[in-house]
Amino acid sequence: MFTNDDYRNYFGELEDVCKKSLEVYTDLLNQLSDQSMRNKLFMLAAEDMDSFNFIAETKKKYFQ
């Protein structure tokens, strides 16, 4: 059985993964000029941003 600390740690890991992913997306988007590639990356980044926000809110609400 997971303890509260376990949940907090796992959600913390998820948050770190999303943050790293979004750092890579934003670095790429800041440099890329190909518009169709940019559009696709913006869509993917938006999904990760949703994940990041959900994880951060959940962590704050339940495991702070």
Binding site: C18, K19, L22, E23, T26, N30, F42, A45, M49, F52
Partner: peptide, 13 residues
């Protein structure tokens, strides 16, 4: 809009 989105994401995280 692209620049606002890039900066917004990077600042939020």
């Amino acid at each position: 809009q692209d620049m606002r989105a890039i900066l917004s994401m990077r600042l939020t995280i």
